[in-house]
Structures are given as C-alpha cells and as structure tokens.
Nucleic acid binder design. Structure first.
Lengths: 339, 339
DNA sequence: TTGTAGGCGTTATCAG
DNA sequence: CTGATAACGCCTACAA
C-alpha cells in the first residue's frame, strides 16, 4: 500500500476567510477569550469544522514559548525496566494530576547512550515545559543537564549528586530498618540480606537500614550483593547466601521480586518459609500476594509518589516556590506469611 | 525553595553576532551542511559554546514541518497497563529502531476520556511525525483520528474496524489452535478455556482458535469469559469453570497471567497441574517460568513486533510504500511442565 | 467587539 | 562560500 501522508492542513487564514472575519478574531475564539460576539463565534466554529482546521502546535509554541507538555524520563537498565513494579503506578499517578491540569505527559525512555543525548536535546529544545525524572543514578548525564537547564523539574528518588531540584521519595533507610526489626522480633538469630542496586540511593539506603537494625549483630558475611532488583537475582542471591552460611534463618530482600526468587531457590533445596527461613521483601508489588506463601514486605505508595512529583512541577510552572527541596512519603509494613 | 525557571536562551542571532557571521551561515553549520569554510565553522562552534546556544525546536519545526518525534499510544484499562507483559518489550523494540534512525520516541498513555482528546490533538497538532498504536480496541477514538489524519502510522495488533493503516501482529487464532491441539494430544478429554479480552481482536481470535481445535468436541459451557488478561481474572475464571464442571482435565488460558491465577485457584482446592488438569497459557511472559510448575505456553515475539511496527512507520516517513497492509510474525509453542 | 500588523527563531531561496 | 530576505502559522498589543 502507498505511504500515508499527512493531509494538507488548513490555517487560521482559511478559517478567517470562510468565516468572513479576521485572523485575530479566529484566534480569539480558538483560545476561548472573552470579547467575541456570539455571531463571530458561531461563524468561526462552523468554519473550523468546514475546513477541518487543527491548530499548528509549532507555530503556537513558538510565540507562546510553551508546549503544554511535560516529560517523564525513565532510564533503567533494559531488563529492569521490564521488571520494575513501581514505574507503572508512578506513571499513572503523574499522568492523573497532569491530565487534570491539562498538560500532556510524554514519556521518554533512555536505553542507550545515544538515547541519552537525543533525550537531553529534546528536553532543552523546548518540546516540554517541565520534567520529572525517575530513578536517576549518580553521575547521570540527563539529570545533570536538566538541573543545569533551569527547566521546572522534580525527581522521584534523590540522586545524591544533584542539588537545587526538588524531589519526593520514601525513607528507604528507616523502612528497611523497621522491616528488619520486625523480622528480628520473630526470633530469628541469623539474618542475611540480598542487596540490590547499590549504585543508587534506594539500594544503598536499604542496606544501611538493615545494618542499623542489626547493630552489633550485623555480620557482613551475611550480605550478598546482586546487580538487579529482579527475580533472577533473588535466586542467585539466595543460593550464594546459603553457600556462605547454611544456618541462616531470616532474609531481608531488597525487593519483592528478589524475595520471590529467594523463595524459589529455597524450595529447590527443600527449604520453606516461614518454617526454615523467614523472608521479607520490599515494595508490596504484585509479586507480594502471589508468592507462596505471600510476602511480608514494605508498602511503597508509588501512585502517590508520582502525584507529588507532578504537583512539584506544576507548582514551579505556576511560579510558586516549593517548601522544601525534598520530602518523604510514609511507608507501611505489610505482614503476611513469609515471615 | 524558589521555582526553577528556564534560563533565557540565546538565539541564532546571538551566535551570529559573536561569531561575526550571518544567521544563514550559523544555520548551515548547525545543520552540518557542506559549503561552509573551516574558518566559519570553527568560529560558529566556538560562539555556540560561548553563548550556550540550544536550538529552538518550535521555530525549527514550524519551518521544516517536521518534529523528529514519533508517538507511541498505549491505552489499556488502568490495571491492565500495569500487568501487560508485552508492552515493555514492544516499547523497547520500537525505541531501538527509531533511535537508530535518530527519531525520538514519545510515549503517551491514555487512561481516561480526557486523556483521549488531549492525546488526539497532540498527535494531529504536529508534535509528532508518525505514530504507532498498541492494542487499539474497536471503535477507538484515537485510532480513528489517526487513521483519518493521514499521519504515517502502524498498529501493533489489528483493530477490526480500521482500514488503510498497516499493522503487524501474530496469528492469534492459529497459535491458539496449535497450543490447544497440543494439549488435546496429551490425552485430555474435557478441555475448558478461560477467555479474556473479547472486546479486542487478540481475545476474540484466541477463542476462535480454541474452538477450531476442538471441532465437534467443543462445548460452550466450558468457556468462561473474564474481563482482563490478569492473574486475578485467572483465579476467578478457574473457580467458575470448576463450578460449571468438575471433570475438566485441561484448560487453555488466554494469557500466562490468567494461567498463573488458574494454577493458584486449583491449588486452593487441592488440584494440581499437570496431574489433575493440564494448563496452557499464552505469551511466554515472565510469568511462565515462575509458576509452579512452569507453564506450557505460546511464545510471542514482542520485541520484534515493536521493531516491525517502527519500520513500517519509518518506511512511510521516507515515502516508501509498504508491501502489504498487515503481516504476521511467527509464534512458537514452548512446552514446559504445566501440561 | 474587531481588524491590522509586528514578531517569535529557523530554514531556505537567491543573488553576490 | 556567504549574506540578505522572505516565509512558516500563530498570538497579541494597539488602534479603531
């Protein structure tokens, strides 16, 4: 079949001619301004329909210096992107508040260095009026570019090396500490951790919270590091942990996916939770209710995180200043049957 | 903290002044055109760095009538969006080929009617040069608007009520038939189906394939309809099926998530796979390898689906015509232990 | 309430 | 190779 080609577009001039008014008047009704006669308005509306007019965004953006769009930057290592249980909820949360304010959310994924430079120039080129960035890592080129651009922005999570950009997050450290303490309270004596994402604040903080909780009972040999917050990392991590020490009776996993993998690895060697080992996760994602047994974990308000980030950007767009640079949302422990 | 405000931007005029050349020359080096002296080029580059120039996209788009961006429309019922195992892979596939061609992929989710109209005008307003649409349903306003707009486009999946827009998909009907036949070959006598998404072609076709395979042995009472391709629907569907007929010994689920739910529902009543009931799924998503036992299912080449769709759009952008309106990619049966 | 006209920042045409 | 000089489509004072 022949290639599709955009049809020739009608301009304000065409509408004006058909409606028998001036371009100025057409523009005014298009923008819903007051001071237009009913006669003019109806004539214009009819003409718009007749010629099939749609406004040219580029021309409008050029003069108004606004796009009405807000970018969402998602960069995760390929595989993680497909796994992360929070991104979807955060996205929907952002979209909900932006939609309400009539902004168009556009999501940009960066999956390679090439993507990175293209996205950076998209952002600074004027395609968007603001941006929210998810899971920036240290030394993140896009985060840096945005910070420098002065573009109204907000982070979900807090990249440690960037200042002057507001953010919302959860207190990973306190939450990790709390859930670990809860696990200790069940009487476990040798508690290990499968720690992922140590190249970002969330991963680091969860490990720190774990350490906090254990105090002098902390034994570094019971911490195994894995690269991803993924199920496969959970399997590998649990195997490694059991190799190091087969008397482990409790495990804190950096994420529910990891915890699920750990449970599977345990079953493979005839161990079960909570009987042999108490296992707790993090996220309260879809995984949590589907493992056998269901996971005790930390509930993370992903949707709300998105909403708050969006509100932060909106505030700046409206010239309002935001109270504090960063704020943390409450997490809660959800205790099920895995520990 | 005070609101962030975009810094005042330098224009081509500023660069021209600093470099001591004309705007025309600046524009030429910016666009990497030939016929510019080395002297001019270096002077301009230095000036660009000095004044921190970044090109204004709106102005450029206005005159070139292009944006360099391509939209990806995702509309799923809220919950499904979070569950769909294919969307991520399709997205990454599309992005890979578009990135290669230096196009910026921008994803737009429609999660409400309000989103729908905003997205439609975003698309037709010139923000994008082309669009790929995932999982359009019948009577889909955006699909219709795009079809009408003449915008280079491609569908992943085939909305039955839209013609003239190329698409790529899989042959859901044949695949469903094949996997059902495979299930029959294991000797199952009473095979039921948990059918989801009957408001879209994929859901309809999977049911049709199931019916094809069974032939006269088809019994409509063994088909239970559920709304979503989700785990929760699988639980509900399996319970209903067992209520209808407790002698069922085989089940074809419309998706892996459903199959996983079915497995859980079975376990709740003391049934297991493949011993009591053989269960097969569809998608070969992450679910498939994590259920107990792992699922026998249909592998769907999601990444490739995305790549092909992107290529379809690219072809039209370059004015090439596409061979056929629709094409189907190969699926393969992956036989594991659930049947 | 309406028309007129200038300008937003770039690209592109056309002499030089 | 380079510099003027029109557009591109729209918004917005300003004048009427």
């Amino acid at each position: 079949m022949p290639p599709r080609r955009p049809v020739q577009r009608a301009t304000i001039n065409d509408v004006a001619r058909v409606a028998g008014v001036s371009r100025g008047t057409v523009s005014r009704v298009l923008n819903g301004e007051t001071y237009v006669s009913d006669a003019a308005r109806t004539a214009v509306e009819a003409a718009v329909a007749e010629v099939g007019y749609v406004r040219n965004a580029a021309a409008r953006n050029l003069v108004t210096r606004q796009s009405g769009a807000i970018g969402l930057i998602v960069h995760e290592p390929h595989s993680l992107f497909l796994e992360d249980p929070n991104i979807g909820s955060i996205l929907l949360g952002i979209n909900a508040v932006l939609s309400e304010a009539d902004y168009q959310l556009v999501s940009l994924v960066v999956d390679s260095d090439r993507d990175g430079v293209r996205v950076a120039s998209y952002l600074t080129g004027g395609y968007v009026d603001g941006v929210v960035i998810i899971s920036a890592r240290e030394n993140d080129p896009i985060g840096l570019a945005v910070a420098r651009s002065g573009l109204p922005a907000a982070f979900v999570g807090h990249p440690m090396d960037i200042e002057g950009v507001p953010y919302v997050g959860i207190d990973n450290r306190s939450a990790a500490r709390a859930v670990t303490e809860r696990l200790m309270a069940t009487g476990r004596q040798r508690i290990g951790m499968i720690a992922a994402g140590l190249d970002r604040d969330s991963g680091q903080d969860r490990l720190a919270g774990f350490t906090d909780a254990l105090g002098d009972r902390f034994d570094p040999r019971l911490v195994v590091e894995v690269p991803l917050f993924a199920h496969s990392s959970g399997i590998a991590g649990m195997r490694e942990l059991l190799t190091h020490d087969d008397r482990v009776d409790g495990v804190f996993a950096s994420s529910d996916a990891i915890a699920a993998g750990a449970l599977d690895a345990m079953r493979d060697v005839g161990l079960s939770a909570p009987g042999d080992i108490g296992v707790v996760g993090f996220d309260d994602s879809a995984w949590a209710r589907r493992t056998q047994p269901p996971l005790s974990t930390v509930h993370q308000p992903a949707d709300l995180l998105g909403r708050r980030a969006a509100e932060l950007v909106l505030a700046q767009l409206e010239g309002r200043s935001v109270e504090a640079e960063g704020s943390f949302l409450e997490t809660t422990i959800v205790w099920r049957d895995s520990a």
